[in-house]
Design a protein around this nucleic acid. Structure first.
Lengths: 213, 213
DNA sequence: GTCGCACTGCATCCTTCGATGTAGTCGCGA
DNA sequence: TCGCGACTACATCGAAGGATGCAGTGCGAC
């Protein structure tokens, strides 16, 4: 039996959700909350398997409530909203929600979503998935970063200077840090710019940043 | 009618997929490919609505093939694989896949997935969604990044210059881009450095980077 | 109006940067 | 041992960057 806590401020909508949930033999409604704070409090008390969480709620919004519930590992959270605005979606997911569904979803989809989340899996409304994928594909600085093998062509001293550049230091500051004359620092900067095919220390600094130095 | 191109190297599996697809009245199999290169070639020729793409294939793997198909906007891609390894999932999604399904999925789920992708929506296997969400939520480690409100103190022109700095441009290049004298570009650089309490254009460039300009 | 203020623009001057030539050091194979 | 190459180091010089002073413009308050 899957125990669900329903958090939704509009009484009519909440009643409808409860009706839908009760119609399933393997699901029971453990409790109902009318705002975010109540949702968190009831989650602590009732320890449901799943919290069905609306985004727009008074006192404490759904995203913040989700963050709290997830942080305390009280339950898995399935976020429900009317509008698939990016800020809601990404906010909820960052807050740790296990699923994201639109209120326009069919009753059977809702039940299936609850079961999916209860199984420890994730679920996202199809209309939203596309944008999530796009967002995900855009973010990752991790994989397709600049080729670290570029650094292989640099000498040890040049790499050290590159690190300093990444911190935004001037040639004089680099010279102090690495205990060399300013002229020498300049030399190394010049050489590494050439090897990396860059045109200024600014580009070198940004490269160093991306490489995580 | 949804036209599907099946790309899968194992003949038996391919045959099974085709059988399943043919069982749906609103789906037709436009073609079959046994490796990645063939998949791309056939996609160019047949212009299907959806490509059902296996990850592990000879000559050109599914992820690379997906990248190509998406780059040329030939079709939406639904990636299919036996193992839900992270590298496959994230690789496929970064390559631009619209959906990701495991071969263990039921026939009806497969058909529904094809329809979802054909509608321009996205779909991800529930077992995988959780990890995708986790990965997504983990990315913005730089949540407490530099305060964007810093930009409020800048004038419009100064912000434009800051953007250029973020691209590593020189004063001369900035002047050309923004149609002003080099001396003016220098002025704006100098002013924004003062306002942001930075000591060189290098630091300004890195700030611009972090702010995502 | 006109005063003040913020923004934009340019010119001047000094500082910093970056390219280049050269020299000393170390390690390695002939 | 010598020669050779790679690395590190410094000096010099023209180019780019950055600070500062000042002028024109637009806008709201008085």
């Amino acid at each position: 039996m899957i125990r669900v806590l329903v958090a939704e401020d509009q009484a009519a909508v909440r009643a409808a959700l409860v009706l839908i949930l009760r119609s399933a033999p393997d699901i029971e409604v453990a409790g109902e909350a009318a705002d975010g704070e109540q949702a968190v409090a009831l989650a602590r008390e009732l320890r449901p398997d799943v919290v069905l969480m609306d985004v727009q709620m008074p006192r404490l919004d759904g995203v913040s409530a989700t963050r709290q519930v997830v942080a305390e590992q009280l339950a898995d959270v399935l976020v429900l909203t009317t509008f698939d605005l990016d800020e809601f979606v990404f906010g909820a997911l960052r807050a740790g929600a296990s699923g994201f569904l639109l209120k326009s979803a069919e009753a059977k989809d809702l039940l299936e979503a609850v079961r999916t989340v209860a199984r420890g899996e994730g679920l996202i409304a199809p209309a939203v998935t596309r944008r999530l994928i796009a967002e995900f594909a855009a973010k990752p600085v991790s994989a397709p970063g600049p080729d670290p093998s570029l650094l292989d062509t640099l000498t040890r001293r040049e790499r050290e200077v590159l690190c300093c550049l990444g911190e935004g230091l001037s040639n004089a500051e680099i010279a102090v840090r690495l205990e060399m004359a300013e002229a020498t620092a300049k030399t190394h900067v010049s050489r590494l710019l050439g090897k990396l095919e860059l045109r200024s220390r600014v580009q070198a600094a940004m490269l160093a940043q991306e490489l995580g130095l």
